[in-house]
């Protein structure tokens, strides 16, 4: 159990490509942090620097009160869960779990106790003597997590652990990871590109873009007050409508903002609403429908109940206080 501090951490590859720059985060003991961003935003690189699999070119990483920049991954007291599970294919599940402990010269009895405990927590007891290839994807992922748990590390690092699972299993495993982390209270850093996974798991989200932090906050803070148009467009599904202010001069704030953001769920049909929309396409989701249209030449998406009346052109009103204003240059939020 430990806090993790990143102080101005950066990664520059030999050849000069910068992958990560100026990242500072204070992660409290027991906190579940999710690093989220599109492909190539540097989130995995950042995680691998914390793990010690990539060298740290700038800044300091501290685990507990120890700077770990020059410490081998094995000695950083962390455990990592990989996207493709990375189980040793020639070892049984039991040997997979025990391997790290054996290398640390943990007494046999202690290894057996921890393996039994992890197997109990993850319900992989019946598979302990099987080889990984005889397991399903979900079971393999459990074993991979078991390998992390038995180490009883200061922190868990997850590198997109659910990406290889099918959609349904992903939802179940997501919940299991959340419950597991609640129970063990181990500091966790989780990398994903899936904003839904990020929202549901995180105590705090770190949204990354182009190797830099766009915003750090609780899922609700990030959702309610996105710090930039990038965050606004990335967090939330369907994505927030970002409309140049000149296309909707009738909206409040459009005079001094460059871009106005409205979440699809904050728009409602109202005969005297300020926004006129021409409907282009409708997506039925069952409980609700997504209506895509155009206003003032700009695309607009609206979420509405599936029984709402539809016509070729609609008038829309927005929920009071739900407009987000952003600067035209750089897209930062205007309060």
């Amino acid at each position: 159990m430990a806090s993790i501090t990143l102080d101005n951490v950066g990664k520059v590859y030999p050849g000069g490509t910068r992958a990560v720059g100026g990242v500072s985060i204070d992660i409290a003991d027991g906190e579940f942090i999710v690093l989220v961003g599109p492909s190539g935003c540097g989130k995995s690189t950042l995680l691998r620097m914390i793990a010690g699999l990539e060298s740290i070119s700038e800044g300091t990483v501290r685990i507990g009160d120890r700077a770990v920049n020059d410490i081998e991954p094995a000695d950083r007291d962390i455990a990592m869960v990989f996207q493709n599970y990375a189980l040793y294919p020639h070892m049984s599940v039991r040997q997979n779990l025990a391997y790290g402990l054996k290398n640390r010269r943990t007494p046999k009895a202690e290894i057996d106790r921890r393996v039994a405990e992890a197997a109990e927590i993850l319900q992989i007891g019946p598979f302990l003597d099987r080889k990984p290839r005889a397991l399903s994807g979900g079971q393999r992922q459990r074993v991979a997590m078991g390998r992390a748990i038995v180490r009883e590390p200061a922190a868990f690092l997850f590198d997109e652990p659910l990406s290889n699972l099918d959609a349904k299993l992903r939802v179940t495993m997501r919940l299991e990871i959340k419950e597991l982390q609640r129970r063990l209270r181990t500091t966790s850093i989780y990398v994903t590109h899936d904003q839904l996974e990020a929202m549901t798991l995180a105590d705090r989200l770190v949204v990354l873009n182009g190797g830099r932090i766009e915003q750090i906050g609780t899922p609700l803070e990030v959702y309610r007050k996105p710090a930039s148009t990038f965050v606004a467009g990335f967090i939330g599904s369907p994505a927030m409508n970002l409309i140049p202010a000149r296309a909707v001069p009738q909206l409040p704030g459009s005079a001094h903002a460059g871009i106005i953001g409205i979440r699809p769920e904050d728009l409602t049909i109202a005969p005297d609403g300020p926004i006129a929309m021409d409907v282009l396409a409708v997506e039925e989701l069952g409980a609700q429908r997504l209506v895509h249209g155009q206003t003032g030449g700009e695309r607009l998406t609206v979420t509405m109940p599936s029984d709402a009346p539809l016509s070729d052109s609609l008038r829309l009103a927005f929920r009071p206080g739900s407009l987000h204003l952003f600067q035209a240059e750089g897209g930062r939020r205007i309060e």
Partner: peptide, 23 residues
């Protein structure tokens, strides 16, 4: 042999010779 396996072994504290022998 996937890189992630090598990395997992590194985190599991296997030095080069142990990695060679065990994996």
């Amino acid at each position: 042999i996937p890189d992630e396996l090598t990395e997992a072994a590194r985190i599991d504290g296997a030095g080069p010779l142990k990695f060679f022998r065990d994996i």
